[in-house]
Amino acid sequence: MHTKQDSFPLISIVVATYNGAKFLATQLDSVLAQDYPNLEIIISDDNSKDETFAILEKYQQQFPAIRIIRSEQNQGYIKNFEQGCKQAKGIFVALCDQDDRWHPEKISKLYAAIEDKALVYADSVLCNENMEPIGVNISDRVTCKDFSSPLEQAIFCRIYGHAMLIRNDFLQQIFPFPSIIPHDWWISYTATLHGGIRYIPEALAWYRQHSNNVFGAVGGKRNKTQKSQVVQQEKRFAIERMQLFYAQCPENRTKEKQVLKSLLETYQGSGIFNGIRRMIIFFQYNDLLLASKKRSKIRKWLFCCKILVKFV
């Protein structure tokens, strides 16, 4: 006898938790309320010290689809997500933060839209700590669209893990997740090399912004203190990131490979010559390199001009 689940491929939801007791139940309830009929829920806990694990065990007793992995020591959010993803048995994988809330049709709508792409993502509603919408969606702050070139994800990535559905056969090829960039940036960049990225312009999650967020406000600006803390590291990070992206880009992507190589050379160098060369590259390919920035053409050109003196 065939069941309704036989018509739908298994989808794995990977939840990463760490000291998330305050908001965890809201997120788990929304995950369990999904209308997609064939799910496994893998929860990777990064050795929480609060009541998180007790909450997880309570849910697991009620819902057999939940599987819990607990780290013996804290390893950080990137490796925590990687640990959960490696255990995923589904044809597709959805990443899940511990403090948001999902629309009940989130998984089913993403599944219907992914087709042959490596990744599909949707819009999200930005909320305050009390999960009250602040009147802004992620798409109001950044450019959300389909992406097919690695250059579109090489400088900025504004595709967030909580909004994704990922093809698992692709995902299993890109471990380990590098430690120098967020896991969702790595997934997005490599997805452009394995079939591309699709966007559906519908808000399917409520993204909670609060003091414990890893990244804080989506698309927000750093304050002066934050800028001073990161300015000395930016060049090193840019070099490491470009080395990583250049190495990952295959030889048959000739144009993109050459642009990444040229950018890497300018980051590794110093002086005004490299600044001018980098600025010219940004002007020439600004539609790709600044694809995620929701800015006017003039503001993108001004950004390209600032590249002249950055890292000189």
Rank of each mutant, 00 (worst) to 15 (best):
Q5P: 01
D6S: 11
I11S: 07
T17R: 08
G20Y: 11
Q27A: 04
S30A: 07
A33G: 08
D35Q: 09
L39V: 11
I41D: 09
Q60S: 09
R67C: 06
Q75R: 13
Q75E: 14
G76P: 03
G76K: 04
N80F: 01
G84Y: 06
C85D: 04
K86W: 03
L95R: 02
D99V: 03
W102I: 08
I107C: 01
A118Y: 01
D123F: 02
I134S: 05
G135K: 09
V136W: 05
I138H: 10
V142D: 00
T143Q: 08
C144T: 06
K145Q: 11
P150E: 04
A154T: 11
I155L: 09
A163S: 14
F170Y: 13
L171N: 01
F177A: 05
W186N: 10
A203C: 04
A203G: 01
G220R: 04
G220N: 06
K221N: 13
R222P: 07
T225N: 10
Q233W: 13
R236H: 12
F237M: 10
E240D: 14
L244F: 06
A247S: 11
E256L: 03
E265G: 04
T266L: 05
I276D: 03
R277G: 05
R278A: 12
R278K: 15
I280G: 01
N286H: 15
D287Y: 06
C304E: 05
L308C: 07
F311P: 02
